[in-house]
Design a binder for these strands. Structure first.
Lengths: 340, 340
DNA sequence: CTGAAAGCGCTTACAG
DNA sequence: CTGAAAGCGCTTACAG
């Protein structure tokens, strides 16, 4: 099966390959007589011809490719952002090269290295951690780089994210409004700025309401298993020393915690209020419907993609991070604290 | 920032680009004096040079790219298979182009079309449905194509999958062994062969044990929400007409069903046994630990990747599907039926 | 073992 | 508006 080329197509139409190339390129087809263009396009469609992108890449000196880093492919909240990124890239004839870092600095490094080798025109990282800040900064000198979801403190890079400080403050205020005074956070790994921001936002807002949260519980991974494990530990103290509300930094941890509460004989929300973050499908479908924070995944993803495209085209990086607001979603896992 | 090329590197070393090319290509470096090879490799490392893959592709006339279709990026069971596929491809210097079909025929078509346009060297579909069987068959005439997870009846293609008939039979026998006689299935969408096979395997094995399952419940999507919805309907009948065991075709549906059971005041497993499929993390972490079937994701993915590589290299397609055995994992959601 | 030339399939100045 | 030529950055016969 020998590959059909532009030369073949041109010959069969009695045209020069250059004309065929122009006719098939939306950015150049205005240089071609409409009748010719139609003839070419039709013939191409008929035989199912489409120019070889690798050859086009070499000549154009553009890979038409963007590297996208995610920490975890099976994480719904992150994949929702990725989907929006992918849509924007596709619309701009850019192919997404997706890679998973698993939050391992070693894998991040290898993956970014591969992006560079592939001559990606931009990098969009949904997986930034301080551990690879230096590498990101150095890559960003030659490749347009966008951070999404997770910010980086130590290096200034174009960033699109959710206002997690505010999101956590919404939770603190919601709980304070319900009358809770004994609250605790179940924090995700501090490597991700999202969790650091949520921790800070919650703490600050609580204090503004005159509440001092109990010492934060730190999860090694932001998973249901960790939520459950830390819940078991938390609930092992006498009842009257228990907090009346827990803010878990994401939905899986919240659900794991609720399981632990059930096992410990605590009713949610009657004995304990639990709030999650992200509003993933499981927040609605498992356990009792979870009070959580809706993450503006579509906005973050769309803007990150758009920003990358703009940087590729020589646009100036925005001076400040693009920040989208989260939204509190009150469901059934939060209520007034139990009476004393 | 003008790109550094092989020509630059060659000049700086006083060598011909051809020699540099050979030195840097593991398959050709044996043609080069070891001392020369070392000199080249070191210089390349020092300046961070790596040959442009697009240019290599055009000249080699190989894209070094494989298209991988998945139905859902956020589905843990499927992503586990994809991860194994990805590892094999990476080891063989192939880049995975991942695309999501969302089980929409229209998106499958567009996505496969894009694979063809990109000149992928092979296609691995974890998302096959009969709706795109014709298209797959036609593509397979020019592009090595491998089916994984989901088989296709109407067209013979190289396939790697799990023995879902057997997996479901394990469940039926487990429940029969416990003494259940009133069972029902909660079936996933029949578009996916996995669910058709599970339905058949369960039914057949049950009948061999002298049990006729109640009419199967059909889920529109294999999600927790659907499990919950169908559970609510199932549990709305008088208790004495209830089945004593439910086989849900995947873990999310099983967990949704368990939630519905809780709401209906049924205790699992005391009043009702529930078994899932796939052994995803949530089977361990949410709800009570779920009895389920471990899916051989690593084997299926590794073999699918290996098979694709072999086909690319001109290997013969296997005469029969490569089938890996599932394994029953008994946890706490299944027990003896309630006494009458 | 190395070099010089040709060529992969495109796109893009350059002419007309 | 179209063509003929050159060239993108590689790799691969072909020589020696």
């Amino acid at each position: 099966m020998t590959q059909i080329t532009m030369k073949h197509l041109a010959e069969s139409l009695g045209l020069n390959p250059a004309t065929v190339s122009r006719a098939l390129d939306p950015d150049k087809s205005h240089l071609v007589a409409e009748a010719t263009r139609l003839r070419v396009v039709r013939a191409a469609e008929e035989i199912g011809y489409t120019p070889d992108p690798a050859a086009a890449s070499t000549r154009r000196r553009r890979s038409s490719t963007v590297g996208v880093l995610v920490p975890d492919l099976a994480n719904e909240a992150i994949i929702n952002v990725f989907r929006a990124v992918g849509e924007v890239l596709e619309r701009n004839d850019l192919t997404a090269l997706i890679a998973e870092s698993a939050d391992s600095p070693e894998r991040s490094r290898r993956t970014l290295e591969r992006c560079r080798a592939r001559r990606v025109e931009a990098i969009i990282s949904l997986a930034a951690t301080e551990a690879d800040a230096d590498l990101m900064a150095s890559l960003a000198r030659t490749i347009p780089t966008v951070l999404a979801i997770r910010t980086l403190d130590s290096v200034k890079l174009p960033t699109v994210c959710c206002d997690d400080v505010k999101g956590a403050a919404l939770v603190a205020n919601h709980l304070a409004d319900l009358g809770h005074t004994r609250m605790v956070q179940l924090m995700g790994p501090p490597e991700s700025a999202t969790f650091r921001n949520r921790a800070r936002g919650f703490e600050t807002a609580a204090r503004l309401r005159g509440i001092t949260p109990a010492p934060t519980l730190s999860a090694a991974h932001a998973t249901a298993a960790e939520g459950r494990r830390l819940g078991e530990r938390l609930f092992s103290v006498p009842r009257d020393q228990l907090p009346t509300a827990v803010f878990a930094h994401n939905d899986p941890m919240a659900l794991g915690l609720i399981e632990a509460a059930r096992v410990a004989g605590l009713r949610v929300p009657r004995d304990l209020s639990v709030v999650g973050y992200n509003d993933t499908t499981m927040a609605r479908d498992f356990s009792l419907p979870l009070t959580t924070v809706r993450y503006p995944a579509h906005d973050v993803g769309t803007q990150a993609g758009t920003l990358a495209v703009s940087l590729i085209n020589g646009g100036a990086p925005p001076k400040k991070p693009l920040v989208f607001p989260p939204q509190l979603v009150v469901r059934e896992s939060s209520a007034r604290p139990p009476a004393r």
